[in-house]
Amino acid sequence: MEKTIHTYTVSIYTENNIGLLNRISAIFQRRHVNIESIVSSVSEIKGVSRWTIVVKVSEEQIKKIVGQIEKQVEVIKAYYHKDEDTIYQESCLFKIKSDLLFEEREIQNIIKDSGANIVTVNKKFFVLEKSGRRNEIEEIYNQLIPFGIMQFVRSGRIAVTKDEMKISEMLAAFSN
């Protein structure tokens, strides 16, 4: 059971440090685990970074990996979650010829139905933004591809967890 492969979202709270990316990615690299996506951002706590890494591994593996991540000096806390335990989103941008926006009724419908946003429009192109689950992004991608996409980019996953992380309490306990 522990050996079946799942998608795991790893959330890591860290101190800001230039070298930490190297240190953490080395832990995945040593075990030949491919990082599906990685996002680094600020967190709800001032001065604390939050990393969101998505990997496909077994529970047995992810436990060991997260253990080794957590023991890094500048890692405050690391967690792993299955998809059902998080609320997660990805975001993507499409750059498309402006003519199409006005000439193809179909495109207007796709935009309306998918809940995508137009970020900017100029004479040459317009940019469409869509956030959502991977399958939603893939759906709109597949719908738009026949019309010709000038550029496409998708972000890594960001996720919040359903249960509490209690990082603030941990940090408060330290300063006391």
């Binding site: 070298g19 190297n22 240190r23 080395a26 040593r30 000096v73 500048e74």
Partner: peptide, 14 residues
Amino acid sequence: IIGISTPVTKWNHQ
């Protein structure tokens, strides 16, 4: 040397 020593140190810093 920070990059080189990262995987073999408990901590390193420049």
